[in-house]
């Protein structure tokens, strides 16, 4: 594979983490403009652990996810009781707050004769983990894919589990969910924590892929994009946001037909989707229809085999 192909694929995978993170909140009924905050927390915490303290990448990813999850749960606990509109504004405010923290943070230590660490708006340079450990960009792509697969596995389990059902109940109607004993607040906080952790995994991977990060990587546009991915792809299944990422980076960016106009095309696409298909391409109805088809096909198969074996009795 060409270097360009590898880097586009890596980018698609890393954006997928933020997109899935935003999606998880959306299927709980919450709009977040600020998942880039947790992507950033992951990036800064993770890079500090490997570049400054010499920890292993896996440990850095887990620790970044944990920190982001705890922070996200805290932000959620403070703001969820206010309702969706306030939560959306709060996520925006919090993300900008965190970005300005990166702008103002200055902490460097000497590692092998170099000064390494976050340096305000100049960013955090020399995250040399991949170089130091001789990990090629090809190998690193596989590491990214592996983590994405883990997260996707989580979504597969989630969407089949009672927790996933409870989350969707909260999204459909909070009052009704509470009336059958499901705590909307607890489930929203839980979803926020998991969403924060997922974004952070992407952030740690992103930082090590780039080898340097700066506060501008974690601006509001990243949040808007991840929201757009989920809204374009649809809210019926986790595949939706992945399709959204594919459309934006896979088609618009890599085909370069729209280079220069990419944002205009993409923004208009989002506006159009919201008018004509408010819950995205793969919305609940479509997913339901597909799953009915599959069920029917499987059912017919089963029936015919049963008919054969049951006939004598």
């Amino acid at each position: 594979m060409t270097d360009y192909g590898i880097s586009v694929l890596s980018l698609i995978c890393m954006e997928s983490f933020v997109a899935l993170s935003t999606y998880l909140l959306l299927i709980t009924g919450q709009v977040s403009f600020g998942q880039q905050a947790y992507f950033g927390i992951g990036a800064y915490v993770g890079s500090s652990l490997t570049a400054l303290a010499g920890f292993d990448l896996t440990f850095a990813i887990l620790a970044g996810a944990l920190v982001a999850g705890v922070v996200a749960a805290g932000v959620g606990a403070l703001t969820f009781r206010l309702g969706g509109l306030y939560f959306a504004i709060a996520t925006l405010a919090f993300a900008e707050l965190i970005r300005l923290v990166w702008v103002n943070i200055n902490y460097q230590v000497e590692v092998d004769g170099f000064m390494v660490g976050p340096k305000g708006s100049e960013g955090f340079r020399d995250i040399r983990y991949l170089l130091d450990n001789d990990i090629s960009s090809n190998q690193y792509l596989w590491i990214i894919v592996l983590w994405l697969a883990l997260v996707i596995a989580f979504f597969i389990v989630l969407e089949r589990s009672r927790l996933g059902l409870a989350i969707r109940m909260v999204e459909n109607d909070e009052t009704a969910a509470a009336s059958v004993g499901i705590s909307p607040t607890r489930h929203k906080i839980m979803a926020a924590a998991m969403a924060g952790a997922i974004a952070a995994i992407g952030g740690v991977l992103f930082a090590h892929f780039m080898t340097f990060i700066d506060p501008r990587n974690f601006g509001v546009m990243l949040g808007v994009h991840s929201l757009a991915y989920a809204m374009i792809g649809g809210m019926g299944t986790f595949i939706g946001p992945l399709i959204g990422v594919g459309i934006d980076i896979g088609l618009l960016e890599s085909l370069r037909i729209f280079s220069g106009y990419r944002m205009i095309v993409f923004g208009s696409l989002v506006a159009a989707i919201l008018i004509f298909r408010p819950r995205g391409l793969l919305d609940e109805k479509t997913v339901h229809r597909i799953s009915m088809r599959v069920r029917q096909a499987l059912g017919n198969n089963r029936k015919s085999t049963r008919a054969v074996t049951d006939d004598p009795g």
Partner: peptide, 25 residues
Amino acid sequence: LKVFRRLTVFDNVLGAQNSASDMTM
């Protein structure tokens, strides 16, 4: 009417079952 509109009839009832609240996340 506050049914869970975008869930199936079956899931509406399944999700309401008593034991759900007794389980940890």
